[in-house]
Amino acid sequence: MDHDHTHVLPADVANPREHSHTIAPAGRHLHAHAGHRKEIDRPVGERMSEAVALQGVCAGYFGRDVLDEISFEVAAGDFIGVIGPNGSGKSTLLKVIAGLLPVQCGSVRVFGRAPDSATRRMLGYVPQIESVNWSFPVTVFDAVLMGTYGRLGFFRRPSAADREAAHQALADVGMSEHADSQIAQLSGGQQQRVFIARSLVQHPKLLLLDEPIAGVDATTQHAIFTLLEKLQKAGATIIVTTHDLSCVAEWFDRVLCLNHRLIAFGPPSEVLNAQTLSATFGSHVLFGTAAS
């Protein structure tokens, strides 16, 4: 393996195998996770119970690897930004964590276990908004209520409590007045908020958001990040992909630079330098470095 980028890795993630002893049984983990909920500004390098751990993961489509030997750990309660150019494997990474795509090698652990029906229940997934047909005949409320379907299982209809949870989630993202609108009438930012609301219905411990600020204006971007930060304070672990570097330093605890391989993973102050960014995006994209 070509490891010529390891020198930019922060010390505590350069060799995740060193920390493999932190993997604990799921039950203990959830308990520990709850105990660390409020602690966000912990010093870098201190190990916590981990929400997500990848070891040597390769994955891709039709036999072509999009992800090449990815290893990293995300501590419970962290707010992670995954950055990289288009086609660098950001969405694929989220799909692997969500258990939507099998890995070709390596292992994925979510709250200490391989992705399965139990981890799915703890997980909220927000896909890229272009991945759905927005002229589909459903209202905003219908779309958010779908967030209850997975947990309900077959042959059960949403109860009054489920409908109440959907209304609450819409209120949380400030979209209550649009409940009866058809989804086609929404702006890009509103579409993002509807999808976030749908993921919140299940009270996820881990939120995976694929490009949640793509194509939204600065105000909406700020509103979405403020909402995500609130969820983080309530205990959620959040992983966001973006190719927008302007927001990286301001919001994320840690940044994961991805271009098929893991280029760097650490706090924005350590990761956002010319060397890492040119390794991630290619040498021509350096205007984002001002943020660090």
Binding site: L100, V126, P127, F154
Partner: peptide, 22 residues
């Protein structure tokens, strides 16, 4: 009728439906 809600979710947003265990 039996799979009404699953077919609806899977038709509208298959990726998220799968992530939610459908």
């Amino acid at each position: 009728a039996l799979f009404y809600k699953e077919l609806l979710f899977a038709s509208f947003d298959p990726i998220t439906a799968a992530a939610n265990g459908i």
